[in-house]
Design a protein around this nucleic acid. Structure first.
Lengths: 252, 252
DNA sequence: TATGTTCTTTTGTTCAGACATTATACAAAC
DNA sequence: GTTTGTATAATGTCTGAACAAAAGAACATA
């Protein structure tokens, strides 16, 4: 009965022994299909090698030739004495990595809250003027957000927007920030230049984030640029270090 | 005559059939040595598979198991009907923001010092075993380095190396680490998976880095992977936050 | 209760051999 | 001379089989 089910599942056990396509590639294809099957994504073990071998009429060695690659790609996880199953998706870091924070969270299915949102108009100080490449004293918008999960806030964001963008201060900042930028202002961020360091919580941050003074805080400053290398936003984030780790993949 | 030469070249045809290290890994090691040989780098074909098989007393299948990976890493080029040779080295890739730390510094013309270097052999704990994908308790090398500028150390590094690499502990760790890995071990890092967070200095770190206890410390954990997605090194760095900021460009 | 001990299941490693496919060189045919 | 076969050499694919090693379960023992 479970046997029948399995055979059913293997819809494309259509191995063509006469095809010029090597068998191991055909097997790989079939396995990739299986990997997409929700049943296997949910942790069910793949048919064991000997079974696959029998069912497909292909030697176990050839089966392994195919699975080897998939294991290397970290799509499958094999465990000696146990079995083979589909690897949990590496959610985050993939594309996300650098999308806006709320999108990051959203993509991971984490429910996200704004505890405070405040918009104000300020004059650029030295730091801001350097980062956003505007003259000191230039008027621009400052957005402050205290954000976190149900159990409380864990990050305090300050954003400054380049005047060129034309932020009015009346935007709905409950929406994803980069959504607003892309769709309302046709401003597409393509580069994020980040500086990360560690500081101790001062009184202000301690209160906002609900931690003792002098707790460890992860500070991320970043300037986001458009395709013409013009700065869009200067963003400073203060993260509770006990609740947040900054993850990133760097390829070369 | 040419036969004799070849046998000479294969200095380490020391296959140990009783070793717990799988034969295909031993073969891989030998091949990496061959890749180092200038003769082969100049385009000479490697011994053909059947010969290798005979000489090492190992089946051709197992030889291929090893070469497969090296081909995947683009260190070897196999051509059906022709032979196998060492691939031309890729041009020194853009030493973008992720080369090793000393290289980074070096490129910026900053003079760099090692205050302490210590190598030891340890057993993998849970964390290490997860990060490096080895079994808990497995023996491997731990490298500790206290590094900084003339005015004192500002980072404490701990590195763990995957046993597969074959670190002996006798390397000259004054050299750039990734130089050693690439040129001595033909292990090319292509991906760095990093986790950055903030902590407070404990007694140990405070002494090493010359800061008060409970100072802000930037902690970077990273696992560096080879082209086959196998972990090479697990590295933990503790930076004086008052002297170091982590900078990175993220493009999309 | 805790701790070994043994058995079973499943992947990991290795082997020896067969035949396919591709590239090359050389010879034969046009 | 150019093309076309043919032999040879090398890697590519595939098989069937055996045993090793790890994980887990069931069981026994202290």
């Amino acid at each position: 009965m479970s046997e029948q089910k399995n055979i059913q599942t293997l819809k494309s056990l259509s191995i063509d022994h006469d095809s010029p396509v090597p068998l191991h590639l055909q097997v790989e294809k079939i396995l990739r299909d299986m990997i997409n099957d929700p049943e296997y994504q949910n942790g069910k073990f793949l048919p064991k090698e000997v079974d696959l071998s029998k069912r497909l009429g292909i030697s176990r060695n050839t089966i392994r030739q195919a699975t080897n690659r998939l294991v290397q790609e970290k799509l499958l996880i094999r465990k000696k004495g146990v079995g083979t199953k589909v690897a949990k998706k590496q959610v985050e870091t993939k594309l996300s990595n650098w999308v806006s924070f709320s999108q990051e969270m959203h993509a991971q299915g984490i429910d996200f809250r704004n505890y405070e949102i405040k918009v104000s108009q300020i004059k650029a100080d030295t730091d801001i003027s350097e980062q956003l490449e505007v003259k000191e004293g230039h008027e621009l918008f400052k957005l402050e957000r205290l954000r976190g999960l149900d159990n409380g806030p864990f990050v305090y964001f300050i954003s400054y927007f380049h005047p060129r963008i034309g932020i009015t201060g009346n935007e709905d900042f409950e929406r994803h920030l980069y959504d607003i930028l892309e769709h309302e202002y046709h401003t597409i961020p393509v580069l994020s230049r980040e500086q990360i360091s560690a500081i101790l919580a001062n009184k202000f941050l301690a209160v906002k984030l609900g931690v003792p003074v002098n707790s460890a805080i992860l500070q991320r400053k970043r300037v986001v640029y458009d395709p013409g290398n013009r700065p869009i936003e200067y963003n400073i984030g203060y993260y509770r270090a006990d609740q947040f780790t900054y993850s990133i993949d760097i390829k070369r």
